[in-house]
Amino acid sequence: MTQALLSYRGAVYPWHCDHIGHMNVMWYVGKFDEATWNAFHQIGLTPSYLRDSGRGMAAVEQHIQYLREVHAGAVLSIRTTVSEIRDKVVVLQHEMSNDDTGEIAARMTLTGVHLDTVKRKACAFSSQILEAVKPLLGKD
């Protein structure tokens, strides 16, 4: 059974909203970015691992679906699964929900590449990372 990680939880503040009263797209992207780093941390791609091993992660593609408006005061959660992992590539599926209404507000698919920061090129994930991802593998 696929396990979804709780990768983000936070509130929408008035300054996150645009002139028509709903959360601006820049804040969706920011909250999804925080979810990405939280998910990475939970599978072992921690800041210390990346720094100490000369590794990094780079987003190479992302797609966002905006499904419901979100307003100031909303509490949001993002849950993350992994739809695909290959030697050097991981594809995350984020789903943002409004905790008050239970509605899905947005979804994002993110493709990330594991990097050797010295050689500045893609490199394989360690076996520990691949094993940590297995419970998160979902079907799209």
Rank of each mutant, 00 (worst) to 15 (best):
K31A: 09
K31I: 15
K31R: 15
K31Q: 13
K31M: 14
F32K: 01
F32E: 04
F32Y: 06
F32V: 12
D33K: 00
D33F: 02
D33W: 03
E34H: 12
E34Y: 10
A35M: 05
A35Y: 05
A35I: 08
T36Y: 06
T36D: 08
T36I: 11
T36M: 12
W37P: 05
W37L: 14
W37E: 09
W37G: 03
W37I: 12
N38T: 14
A39Y: 00
A39D: 03
A39T: 00
A39W: 00
F40N: 11
F40T: 02
F40Y: 09
F40V: 04
H41W: 08
Q42P: 12
Q42L: 13
Q42F: 08
I43P: 12
I43D: 10
I43F: 07
I43N: 09
G44R: 05
G44V: 01
G44M: 03
L45V: 09
L45R: 01
T46Q: 09
T46S: 12
T46N: 05
P47D: 08
P47L: 07
P47H: 11
S48Y: 04
S48N: 10
S48P: 02
S48K: 07
Y49F: 13
L50Q: 11
L50E: 04
L50M: 14
L50N: 03
R51I: 03
R51V: 03
R51P: 00
R51D: 09
D52R: 01
D52K: 02
S53Q: 15
S53K: 13
S53F: 14
G54C: 07
G54R: 00
G54V: 04
R55I: 07
R55N: 04
G56H: 05
G56L: 02
G56M: 04
G56I: 02
G56T: 01
M57Y: 00
M57K: 00
M57F: 02
A58W: 13
A58C: 07
A59N: 08
A59D: 12
A59V: 15
A59K: 01
A59G: 13
A59I: 15
A59H: 01
A59Y: 04
A59C: 13
V60G: 02
V60T: 12
V60H: 05
V60R: 03
E61D: 14
E61T: 01
E61F: 13
E61S: 12
E61Q: 13
E61W: 15
Q62T: 11
Q62D: 12
Q62P: 01
Q62H: 14
Q62F: 12
H63N: 13
H63T: 09
